[in-house]
Design a binder for these strands. Structure first.
Lengths: 197, 197
DNA sequence: TTATATTGTCTAATGTCATTAGTCACGCGA
DNA sequence: TCGCGTGACTAATGACATTAGACAATATAA
Protein backbone atom coordinates (compact mmCIF):
# COMPACT_ATOMS: atom_id res chain seq x y z
CA UNK A 1 0.00 0.00 0.00
CA UNK A 2 0.94 3.59 -0.19
CA UNK A 3 2.71 3.16 -3.50
CA UNK A 4 2.58 6.11 -5.81
CA UNK A 5 0.85 5.64 -9.10
CA UNK A 6 1.94 8.95 -10.49
CA UNK A 7 -1.66 9.93 -10.96
CA UNK A 8 -2.10 13.53 -12.07
CA UNK A 9 -4.92 15.95 -12.74
CA UNK A 10 -5.05 15.19 -16.45
CA UNK A 11 -5.56 11.50 -15.86
CA UNK A 12 -8.18 12.22 -13.23
CA UNK A 13 -10.09 14.53 -15.55
CA UNK A 14 -9.76 12.10 -18.45
CA UNK A 15 -11.22 9.27 -16.40
CA UNK A 16 -13.97 11.53 -15.09
CA UNK A 17 -14.81 12.56 -18.64
CA UNK A 18 -15.06 8.94 -19.64
CA UNK A 19 -17.50 8.18 -16.83
CA UNK A 20 -19.57 11.32 -17.30
CA UNK A 21 -19.90 10.79 -21.05
CA UNK A 22 -20.71 7.12 -20.89
CA UNK A 23 -22.81 6.86 -17.75
CA UNK A 24 -24.03 10.41 -17.26
CA UNK A 25 -22.75 13.24 -15.13
CA UNK A 26 -24.95 12.01 -12.32
CA UNK A 27 -23.05 8.75 -12.21
CA UNK A 28 -19.76 10.54 -11.67
CA UNK A 29 -18.93 10.17 -8.00
CA UNK A 30 -15.62 10.21 -6.23
CA UNK A 31 -16.26 6.58 -5.46
CA UNK A 32 -16.88 5.57 -9.08
CA UNK A 33 -13.95 7.64 -10.29
CA UNK A 34 -11.59 6.26 -7.66
CA UNK A 35 -12.64 2.76 -8.54
CA UNK A 36 -12.02 3.41 -12.24
CA UNK A 37 -8.56 4.71 -11.42
CA UNK A 38 -7.70 1.85 -9.11
CA UNK A 39 -7.42 4.10 -6.10
CA UNK A 40 -9.35 4.89 -2.90
CA UNK A 41 -11.62 7.88 -2.97
CA UNK A 42 -9.79 9.97 -0.34
CA UNK A 43 -6.73 9.82 -2.58
CA UNK A 44 -8.52 11.97 -5.13
CA UNK A 45 -8.43 14.92 -2.78
CA UNK A 46 -4.76 15.26 -3.61
CA UNK A 47 -5.67 16.18 -7.16
CA UNK A 48 -9.05 17.76 -6.91
CA UNK A 49 -11.00 19.69 -4.29
CA UNK A 50 -13.73 17.20 -3.56
CA UNK A 51 -16.65 16.42 -5.81
CA UNK A 52 -17.38 20.07 -6.49
CA UNK A 53 -13.78 20.65 -7.44
CA UNK A 54 -13.86 17.67 -9.74
CA UNK A 55 -16.91 18.97 -11.54
CA UNK A 56 -15.29 22.38 -11.81
CA UNK A 57 -12.21 20.88 -13.45
CA UNK A 58 -14.46 18.95 -15.77
CA UNK A 59 -16.18 22.16 -16.80
CA UNK A 60 -12.81 23.76 -17.56
CA UNK A 61 -11.87 20.80 -19.65
CA UNK A 62 -15.18 20.87 -21.48
CA UNK A 63 -14.93 24.60 -22.13
CA UNK A 64 -11.42 24.31 -23.54
CA UNK A 65 -12.34 21.41 -25.75
CA UNK A 66 -15.50 23.03 -27.04
CA UNK A 67 -13.84 26.36 -27.72
CA UNK A 68 -11.25 24.66 -29.90
CA UNK A 69 -13.87 22.64 -31.75
CA UNK A 70 -16.12 25.59 -32.46
CA UNK A 71 -13.25 27.82 -33.48
CA UNK A 72 -12.01 25.19 -35.90
CA UNK A 73 -15.51 24.66 -37.26
CA UNK A 74 -15.95 28.36 -37.99
CA UNK A 75 -12.46 28.71 -39.43
CA UNK A 76 -12.58 30.48 -42.76
CA UNK A 77 -16.34 30.91 -42.70
CA UNK A 78 -18.39 34.05 -42.28
CA UNK A 79 -21.91 35.10 -41.52
CA UNK A 80 -24.64 32.51 -41.72
CA UNK A 81 -22.24 29.81 -42.89
CA UNK A 82 -20.19 30.29 -39.75
CA UNK A 83 -23.27 30.29 -37.51
CA UNK A 84 -24.54 27.09 -39.06
CA UNK A 85 -21.18 25.39 -38.75
CA UNK A 86 -20.95 26.39 -35.09
CA UNK A 87 -24.44 25.14 -34.31
CA UNK A 88 -23.81 21.82 -36.03
CA UNK A 89 -20.49 21.39 -34.28
CA UNK A 90 -22.03 22.17 -30.89
CA UNK A 91 -24.65 19.51 -31.40
CA UNK A 92 -21.96 17.08 -32.46
CA UNK A 93 -20.01 17.88 -29.30
CA UNK A 94 -23.09 17.22 -27.20
CA UNK A 95 -23.57 13.85 -28.89
CA UNK A 96 -19.98 12.81 -28.38
CA UNK A 97 -19.70 14.31 -24.89
CA UNK A 98 -23.11 14.40 -23.23
CA UNK A 99 -21.53 14.43 -19.80
CA UNK A 100 -19.24 17.32 -20.59
CA UNK A 101 -22.10 19.19 -22.23
CA UNK A 102 -24.08 18.88 -19.02
CA UNK A 103 -21.35 20.59 -17.05
CA UNK A 104 -22.07 23.91 -18.80
CA UNK A 105 -25.22 24.42 -16.76
CA UNK A 106 -25.61 25.78 -14.20
CA UNK A 107 -23.08 28.43 -15.14
CA UNK A 108 -21.30 30.31 -12.37
CA UNK A 109 -21.68 34.08 -12.26
CA UNK A 110 -18.45 36.07 -12.69
CA UNK A 111 -18.34 36.95 -9.01
CA UNK A 112 -18.87 33.36 -7.86
CA UNK A 113 -16.07 31.94 -9.96
CA UNK A 114 -14.43 34.47 -12.27
CA UNK A 115 -11.99 32.02 -13.85
CA UNK A 116 -14.62 29.49 -14.72
CA UNK A 117 -17.06 32.15 -15.87
CA UNK A 118 -14.49 33.55 -18.26
CA UNK A 119 -13.58 30.11 -19.57
CA UNK A 120 -17.23 29.63 -20.45
CA UNK A 121 -17.35 32.90 -22.34
CA UNK A 122 -15.17 31.56 -25.14
CA UNK A 123 -17.94 30.07 -27.26
CA UNK A 124 -20.28 32.98 -26.62
CA UNK A 125 -17.64 35.45 -27.72
CA UNK A 126 -17.02 33.46 -30.86
CA UNK A 127 -20.64 33.74 -31.90
CA UNK A 128 -20.62 37.37 -30.87
CA UNK A 129 -17.70 38.10 -33.14
CA UNK A 130 -19.42 36.43 -36.06
CA UNK A 131 -22.50 38.54 -35.54
CA UNK A 132 -20.38 41.63 -35.02
CA UNK A 133 -18.94 41.17 -38.50
CA UNK A 134 -22.41 40.77 -39.93
CA UNK A 135 -23.65 44.28 -40.24
CA UNK A 136 -26.45 43.97 -37.73
CA UNK A 137 -27.84 46.79 -35.68
CA UNK A 138 -26.01 46.42 -32.34
CA UNK A 139 -29.33 46.76 -30.57
CA UNK A 140 -30.39 43.47 -32.07
CA UNK A 141 -27.23 41.52 -31.48
CA UNK A 142 -27.85 40.35 -27.94
CA UNK A 143 -31.44 39.23 -28.50
CA UNK A 144 -30.39 37.37 -31.62
CA UNK A 145 -27.49 35.62 -29.91
CA UNK A 146 -29.89 34.56 -27.21
CA UNK A 147 -32.43 33.33 -29.70
CA UNK A 148 -29.82 31.24 -31.45
CA UNK A 149 -28.37 29.89 -28.23
CA UNK A 150 -31.83 29.09 -26.94
CA UNK A 151 -32.85 27.23 -30.05
CA UNK A 152 -29.66 25.23 -30.29
CA UNK A 153 -29.36 24.46 -26.61
CA UNK A 154 -33.05 23.69 -26.28
CA UNK A 155 -32.91 21.27 -29.15
CA UNK A 156 -29.86 19.52 -27.76
CA UNK A 157 -31.24 19.36 -24.24
CA UNK A 158 -34.55 17.92 -25.38
CA UNK A 159 -32.80 15.48 -27.66
CA UNK A 160 -30.42 14.28 -24.94
CA UNK A 161 -33.19 13.83 -22.40
CA UNK A 162 -35.63 12.01 -24.59
CA UNK A 163 -37.84 15.06 -24.80
CA UNK A 164 -38.82 14.33 -28.38
CA UNK A 165 -41.34 11.56 -28.38
CA UNK A 166 -40.97 10.45 -31.95
CA UNK A 167 -37.57 9.33 -33.16
CA UNK A 168 -38.21 10.35 -36.74
CA UNK A 169 -36.00 12.70 -38.63
CA UNK A 170 -34.34 14.38 -35.72
CA UNK A 171 -31.51 15.59 -37.90
CA UNK A 172 -34.02 17.20 -40.24
CA UNK A 173 -35.75 18.88 -37.36
CA UNK A 174 -32.45 20.28 -36.17
CA UNK A 175 -31.74 21.69 -39.60
CA UNK A 176 -35.17 23.27 -39.69
CA UNK A 177 -34.71 24.75 -36.25
CA UNK A 178 -31.36 26.38 -36.81
CA UNK A 179 -32.15 27.48 -40.35
CA UNK A 180 -35.23 29.19 -39.08
CA UNK A 181 -33.21 31.25 -36.62
CA UNK A 182 -30.21 31.82 -38.82
CA UNK A 183 -32.30 32.90 -41.79
CA UNK A 184 -34.06 35.40 -39.60
CA UNK A 185 -30.69 36.73 -38.55
CA UNK A 186 -29.72 37.00 -42.19
CA UNK A 187 -32.96 38.86 -42.90
CA UNK A 188 -32.19 41.32 -40.13
CA UNK A 189 -28.78 41.83 -41.69
CA UNK A 190 -30.37 42.48 -45.09
CA UNK A 191 -32.67 44.99 -43.61
CA UNK A 192 -29.83 46.78 -41.85
CA UNK A 193 -27.95 47.05 -45.12
CA UNK A 194 -30.99 48.44 -46.90
CA UNK A 195 -31.54 50.98 -44.16
CA UNK A 196 -27.97 52.08 -44.55
CA UNK A 197 -28.44 52.75 -48.24
CA UNK B 1 -44.74 8.42 19.21
CA UNK B 2 -46.51 6.49 16.57
CA UNK B 3 -49.40 8.94 16.48
CA UNK B 4 -51.05 9.37 13.14
CA UNK B 5 -50.81 12.73 11.53
CA UNK B 6 -53.24 11.92 8.79
CA UNK B 7 -50.60 12.75 6.23
CA UNK B 8 -51.68 11.97 2.69
CA UNK B 9 -50.18 12.01 -0.78
CA UNK B 10 -51.45 15.48 -1.58
CA UNK B 11 -49.76 16.99 1.43
CA UNK B 12 -46.58 15.12 0.66
CA UNK B 13 -46.55 16.35 -2.92
CA UNK B 14 -47.40 19.88 -1.85
CA UNK B 15 -44.51 19.99 0.60
CA UNK B 16 -42.19 18.47 -1.98
CA UNK B 17 -43.26 21.11 -4.50
CA UNK B 18 -42.50 23.81 -1.99
CA UNK B 19 -38.98 22.50 -1.41
CA UNK B 20 -38.26 21.83 -5.06
CA UNK B 21 -39.44 25.28 -6.14
CA UNK B 22 -37.68 27.21 -3.41
CA UNK B 23 -34.46 25.27 -2.99
CA UNK B 24 -34.16 23.40 -6.26
CA UNK B 25 -35.09 19.89 -7.25
CA UNK B 26 -31.66 18.74 -6.19
CA UNK B 27 -32.38 19.82 -2.63
CA UNK B 28 -35.45 17.62 -2.46
CA UNK B 29 -34.48 14.55 -0.47
CA UNK B 30 -36.60 12.24 1.59
CA UNK B 31 -34.72 13.57 4.58
CA UNK B 32 -35.49 17.24 3.84
CA UNK B 33 -39.09 16.45 2.97
CA UNK B 34 -39.63 14.36 6.10
CA UNK B 35 -38.15 17.12 8.18
CA UNK B 36 -40.45 19.70 6.59
CA UNK B 37 -43.43 17.48 7.33
CA UNK B 38 -42.38 16.78 10.92
CA UNK B 39 -41.93 13.12 10.24
CA UNK B 40 -39.10 10.56 9.92
CA UNK B 41 -37.99 9.67 6.43
CA UNK B 42 -39.01 6.00 6.46
CA UNK B 43 -42.56 7.15 7.13
CA UNK B 44 -42.71 8.64 3.67
CA UNK B 45 -42.58 5.18 2.15
CA UNK B 46 -46.20 4.79 3.18
CA UNK B 47 -47.19 7.49 0.71
CA UNK B 48 -44.59 7.34 -1.97
CA UNK B 49 -42.32 4.70 -3.45
CA UNK B 50 -38.97 6.04 -2.35
CA UNK B 51 -37.22 9.03 -3.79
CA UNK B 52 -37.86 7.95 -7.36
CA UNK B 53 -41.53 7.52 -6.61
CA UNK B 54 -41.64 10.95 -5.03
CA UNK B 55 -40.14 12.54 -8.11
CA UNK B 56 -42.55 10.65 -10.28
CA UNK B 57 -45.51 11.97 -8.30
CA UNK B 58 -44.06 15.43 -8.54
CA UNK B 59 -43.87 15.09 -12.30
CA UNK B 60 -47.53 14.05 -12.45
CA UNK B 61 -48.46 17.03 -10.34
CA UNK B 62 -46.41 19.35 -12.53
CA UNK B 63 -47.89 17.95 -15.72
CA UNK B 64 -51.46 18.36 -14.48
CA UNK B 65 -50.83 21.88 -13.30
CA UNK B 66 -49.10 22.92 -16.48
CA UNK B 67 -51.70 21.39 -18.76
CA UNK B 68 -54.42 23.39 -17.04
CA UNK B 69 -52.44 26.60 -17.20
CA UNK B 70 -51.57 26.25 -20.86
CA UNK B 71 -55.08 25.25 -21.83
CA UNK B 72 -56.49 28.27 -20.02
CA UNK B 73 -53.92 30.53 -21.61
CA UNK B 74 -54.81 29.38 -25.10
CA UNK B 75 -58.55 29.49 -24.43
CA UNK B 76 -60.33 31.39 -27.14
CA UNK B 77 -57.17 32.07 -29.12
CA UNK B 78 -56.06 30.69 -32.44
CA UNK B 79 -52.98 30.44 -34.53
CA UNK B 80 -50.02 32.58 -33.68
CA UNK B 81 -51.87 34.28 -30.84
CA UNK B 82 -52.42 30.95 -29.19
CA UNK B 83 -48.81 29.88 -29.69
CA UNK B 84 -47.54 33.10 -28.18
CA UNK B 85 -49.86 32.85 -25.22
CA UNK B 86 -48.75 29.28 -24.58
CA UNK B 87 -45.07 30.16 -24.78
CA UNK B 88 -45.49 33.08 -22.41
CA UNK B 89 -47.47 31.00 -19.96
CA UNK B 90 -44.91 28.22 -20.03
CA UNK B 91 -42.16 30.65 -19.16
CA UNK B 92 -44.28 32.06 -16.38
CA UNK B 93 -44.83 28.54 -15.05
CA UNK B 94 -41.09 27.94 -15.06
CA UNK B 95 -40.51 31.16 -13.12
CA UNK B 96 -43.11 30.33 -10.50
CA UNK B 97 -42.23 26.62 -10.35
CA UNK B 98 -38.61 26.10 -11.30
CA UNK B 99 -38.48 22.84 -9.38
CA UNK B 100 -41.58 21.45 -11.06
CA UNK B 101 -40.31 22.59 -14.43
CA UNK B 102 -37.14 20.62 -13.86
CA UNK B 103 -39.10 17.42 -13.38
CA UNK B 104 -40.10 17.40 -17.06
CA UNK B 105 -36.64 16.25 -18.08
CA UNK B 106 -35.56 13.56 -18.43
CA UNK B 107 -38.84 12.35 -19.87
CA UNK B 108 -39.69 8.66 -19.63
CA UNK B 109 -40.32 6.77 -22.85
CA UNK B 110 -43.81 5.29 -23.25
CA UNK B 111 -42.56 1.79 -22.56
CA UNK B 112 -40.68 2.77 -19.42
CA UNK B 113 -43.62 4.51 -17.79
CA UNK B 114 -46.71 4.73 -20.02
CA UNK B 115 -48.84 6.63 -17.52
CA UNK B 116 -46.27 9.30 -16.90
CA UNK B 117 -45.36 9.53 -20.56
CA UNK B 118 -48.98 10.14 -21.49
CA UNK B 119 -49.41 12.72 -18.74
CA UNK B 120 -46.52 14.61 -20.26
CA UNK B 121 -48.09 14.55 -23.68
CA UNK B 122 -50.80 17.00 -22.65
CA UNK B 123 -48.93 20.20 -23.42
CA UNK B 124 -47.39 18.78 -26.58
CA UNK B 125 -50.79 17.78 -27.89
CA UNK B 126 -52.17 21.20 -27.14
CA UNK B 127 -49.56 22.85 -29.33
CA UNK B 128 -50.09 20.16 -31.92
CA UNK B 129 -53.79 20.91 -32.09
CA UNK B 130 -53.12 24.61 -32.55
CA UNK B 131 -50.79 23.89 -35.42
CA UNK B 132 -53.20 21.38 -36.84
CA UNK B 133 -55.82 24.10 -37.13
CA UNK B 134 -53.33 26.36 -38.85
CA UNK B 135 -53.29 25.16 -42.39
CA UNK B 136 -49.72 23.99 -42.43
CA UNK B 137 -48.36 21.25 -44.60
CA UNK B 138 -48.40 18.19 -42.28
CA UNK B 139 -44.86 17.42 -43.35
CA UNK B 140 -43.72 20.58 -41.63
CA UNK B 141 -45.70 20.27 -38.44
CA UNK B 142 -43.32 18.11 -36.46
CA UNK B 143 -40.17 20.06 -37.29
CA UNK B 144 -41.95 23.30 -36.47
CA UNK B 145 -43.26 22.02 -33.14
CA UNK B 146 -39.75 20.93 -32.31
CA UNK B 147 -38.31 24.28 -33.30
CA UNK B 148 -40.78 26.09 -31.09
CA UNK B 149 -40.27 23.75 -28.17
CA UNK B 150 -36.53 23.98 -28.53
CA UNK B 151 -36.51 27.74 -28.59
CA UNK B 152 -38.85 28.14 -25.64
CA UNK B 153 -37.31 25.40 -23.53
CA UNK B 154 -33.78 26.47 -24.36
CA UNK B 155 -34.51 30.03 -23.37
CA UNK B 156 -36.09 28.97 -20.09
CA UNK B 157 -33.35 26.52 -19.27
CA UNK B 158 -30.60 29.05 -19.93
CA UNK B 159 -32.46 31.68 -18.00
CA UNK B 160 -33.03 29.45 -14.99
CA UNK B 161 -29.44 28.28 -14.87
CA UNK B 162 -27.79 31.64 -15.23
CA UNK B 163 -26.76 30.85 -18.77
CA UNK B 164 -27.27 34.43 -19.90
CA UNK B 165 -24.36 36.48 -18.70
CA UNK B 166 -25.93 39.90 -18.98
CA UNK B 167 -29.09 40.58 -17.03
CA UNK B 168 -30.36 43.18 -19.50
CA UNK B 169 -33.71 42.95 -21.14
CA UNK B 170 -34.31 39.28 -20.74
CA UNK B 171 -38.01 39.75 -21.32
CA UNK B 172 -37.29 41.51 -24.59
CA UNK B 173 -34.99 38.72 -25.65
CA UNK B 174 -37.68 36.19 -24.94
CA UNK B 175 -40.13 38.11 -27.06
CA UNK B 176 -37.62 38.26 -29.87
CA UNK B 177 -36.92 34.56 -29.62
CA UNK B 178 -40.49 33.35 -29.72
CA UNK B 179 -41.63 35.91 -32.29
CA UNK B 180 -38.87 34.78 -34.53
CA UNK B 181 -40.09 31.21 -34.48
CA UNK B 182 -43.77 31.97 -34.46
CA UNK B 183 -43.52 34.41 -37.34
CA UNK B 184 -41.73 31.81 -39.36
CA UNK B 185 -44.52 29.39 -38.61
CA UNK B 186 -47.01 32.01 -39.76
CA UNK B 187 -44.99 32.48 -42.92
CA UNK B 188 -45.11 28.76 -43.60
CA UNK B 189 -48.87 28.92 -43.15
CA UNK B 190 -49.12 31.82 -45.59
CA UNK B 191 -47.14 29.93 -48.11
CA UNK B 192 -49.32 26.85 -47.72
CA UNK B 193 -52.43 28.95 -48.35
CA UNK B 194 -50.92 30.51 -51.43
CA UNK B 195 -49.91 27.13 -52.77
CA UNK B 196 -53.45 25.98 -52.28
CA UNK B 197 -54.80 28.85 -54.37
C1' DT C 1 25.63 7.86 0.02
C1' DT C 2 22.89 9.06 3.62
C1' DA C 3 19.63 12.16 5.73
C1' DT C 4 15.57 14.89 5.02
C1' DA C 5 11.62 16.80 3.01
C1' DT C 6 7.83 16.25 -0.05
C1' DT C 7 4.41 13.82 -2.23
C1' DG C 8 0.77 10.52 -3.06
C1' DT C 9 -1.56 7.01 -1.28
C1' DC C 10 -3.56 4.65 2.45
C1' DT C 11 -6.75 3.39 6.71
C1' DA C 12 -9.95 4.93 10.09
C1' DA C 13 -13.68 7.59 11.49
C1' DT C 14 -17.78 10.70 10.99
C1' DG C 15 -21.95 12.29 9.01
C1' DT C 16 -25.69 12.32 5.51
C1' DC C 17 -28.78 9.95 2.81
C1' DA C 18 -31.91 6.01 0.94
C1' DT C 19 -33.82 1.92 1.95
C1' DT C 20 -35.63 -2.34 4.33
C1' DA C 21 -37.42 -4.90 8.22
C1' DG C 22 -39.93 -5.24 11.87
C1' DT C 23 -42.58 -2.79 15.90
C1' DC C 24 -46.30 -0.48 17.88
C1' DA C 25 -49.88 3.14 18.83
C1' DC C 26 -54.10 5.05 17.27
C1' DG C 27 -58.84 5.01 16.07
C1' DC C 28 -62.61 3.07 13.37
C1' DG C 29 -66.01 -0.55 12.68
C1' DA C 30 -68.01 -4.76 14.51
C1' DT D 1 -65.28 -3.11 24.01
C1' DC D 2 -62.50 -5.75 20.98
C1' DG D 3 -59.81 -6.25 17.07
C1' DC D 4 -57.53 -4.84 13.09
C1' DG D 5 -55.71 -2.01 9.65
C1' DT D 6 -53.30 2.20 8.91
C1' DG D 7 -49.55 5.10 9.48
C1' DA D 8 -46.28 6.25 12.14
C1' DC D 9 -41.88 4.63 14.55
C1' DT D 10 -36.85 2.60 15.73
C1' DA D 11 -33.02 -0.08 14.27
C1' DA D 12 -29.88 -1.60 10.94
C1' DT D 13 -27.45 -1.65 6.42
C1' DG D 14 -25.01 0.21 2.70
C1' DA D 15 -23.43 3.94 -0.61
C1' DC D 16 -21.31 8.37 -0.51
C1' DA D 17 -18.35 12.55 0.72
C1' DT D 18 -15.22 14.27 3.64
C1' DT D 19 -11.48 14.93 7.21
C1' DA D 20 -7.49 13.51 9.94
C1' DG D 21 -3.53 11.33 10.43
C1' DA D 22 -0.11 7.40 9.19
C1' DC D 23 3.22 5.79 6.08
C1' DA D 24 5.75 4.52 1.96
C1' DA D 25 8.01 6.09 -2.18
C1' DT D 26 10.48 9.44 -4.34
C1' DA D 27 13.11 13.58 -4.90
C1' DT D 28 16.49 16.69 -2.94
C1' DA D 29 20.46 18.20 -0.19
C1' DA D 30 24.40 17.48 2.56
Amino acid sequence: MGRKLGLDLDQVVAAATQIADSEGLGALSLASLASALGVRSPSLYTHVDGLDGLRRQLTFHAARLLTVELTDAAEGLEGTKALTAIAVQLRSFAHRHPGLYETFLPAPTPDEDPDLASALEGPVKLVGSVLASMNIDPIHVIPLIRALRSAVHGFIDLELHAGFGLPDDIDDSFTTTINLVIETIAAVEEKAMLDQA
